[in-house]
């Protein structure tokens, strides 16, 4: 661990000012960040403790949604009765991730900002364009079991590892961000994380000095909510593939199909064409196959992760069948 100064954030503006320096990083739960400090994957000069900021509440919004403060623990979100009644898929996704001890410490904002678990990113003796721009990508010709099949670039094939954000993308939640000079902005979760392109070191759209203050869930919608996470061991493993779905039917017709996918890309994957295809249609295996065709149209494997392509198809079809009541 490289020695650093530890500062305490004295209000949001102060936190933003401190974090405007690119060698300064905020810390909340630290469940991912502290590991990366020890490994010297992260080597900030200054770390700002933002836990004193008043961002720890869950409040209902005027339009019937829910605002979850950036410092609310994952456990607190998962056990919140409003979440469990109206957005149960969010609680399920959180409980599908990490362990009880980690969820007790991990926060809403930190969870969104967690970094990839790519083996090459976390090993400073290996090349990684995300960690060290220009050093190359060890995974493309190396061990790529965990890695992305959608939206990759020649520079990076890492995945975003989380579960919560996948569901937030399906629910079309919004990220509330505080910026310099008391400015604020709102970014849809679907646009918060980015694809690696030629700047894989940028995980998301946060600029230096910006702090996540909350995540807002839109008003609850009718329909079945499913989060299906596929992994070889049944807990404490990142998704090989995960599917978050909110599906509603009117008689035999699909009226809502909000879907997002984990384990496939550098971001929670949301493809609006899938809802366009499904809504208004009668569910059938053929239709589900078409949805999978759309999802995986441009999928590309890197050897060891080729299996994710058929696995994503099968998992998507199984989730759609479950949510629409079709017997596959």
């Amino acid at each position: 661990m490289k020695p650093f100064d530890l500062q305490r954030a004295d209000g949001l503006a102060h936190a933003g000012q401190l974090c405007a320096d690119k060698h300064t990083a905020p810390i909340a739960g630290g469940t991912n960040f502290v590991d990366l400090l020890k490994l010297e994957v992260e080597t900030p000069s200054t770390v700002v403790n933002i836990n004193p900021l008043p961002l720890g509440g869950i409040e209902e919004t005027a339009d019937g949604g829910l605002s979850i403060g950036a410092l609310v623990s994952n456990t607190a979100t998962a056990v919140d009765m409003r979440v469990r009644e109206n957005w149960p898929v969010l609680a399920r996704a959180i409980l599908a991730g990490a362990t009880q001890q980690l969820r007790n410490k991990a926060t809403t904002g930190g969870n969104l900002c967690q970094r990839t678990r790519c083996y090459y990113f976390t090993n400073i003796d290996q090349p990684c364009n995300k960690r060290e721009p220009g050093s190359g990508c060890g995974a493309i010709k190396g061990v790529a079991r965990l890695h992305a099949v959608l939206g990759t670039s020649d520079h990076c094939i890492a995945t975003y590892p989380g579960d919560m954000a996948v569901v937030l993308a399906a629910l079309d939640a919004q990220v509330e961000i505080a910026g310099p000079k008391d400015s604020t902005r709102t970014v849809p979760v679907r646009d918060f994380h980015r694809l690696p392109g030629d700047q894989p070191w940028k995980d998301n759209v946060l600029e230096d000095g910006e702090i996540i203050t909350a995540v807002t869930l839109p008003a609850p919608v009718a329909g079945r909510q499913v989060y299906r996470k596929v992994r070889e061991r049944s807990s404490y493993a990142f998704a090989l593939v995960s599917v978050a779905a909110v599906i509603d039917m009117d008689g035999d017709s699909i009226t809502r199909a909000d879907l997002a996918f984990g384990g496939l890309a550098h971001k929670p994957w949301h493809d609006p064409r899938i809802a366009d295809l499904l809504v208004g249609q009668s569910p059938s295996e053929a239709l589900f196959d078409k949805a999978a065709d759309l999802l995986l149209e441009e999928a590309q494997g890197y050897g060891e992760n080729d299996f994710k392509i058929p696995l994503a198809r099968r998992t998507l079809k199984a989730v759609l069948a479950e949510a629409t009541g079709v017997k596959p």
Binding site: Y119, D125, G142, V143
Partner: peptide, 16 residues
Amino acid sequence: LFDPNDGHIANADLAE
């Protein structure tokens, strides 16, 4: 999981 280029163990922790 051994890296094919330098033989290092890629998943060298209890998370992976």
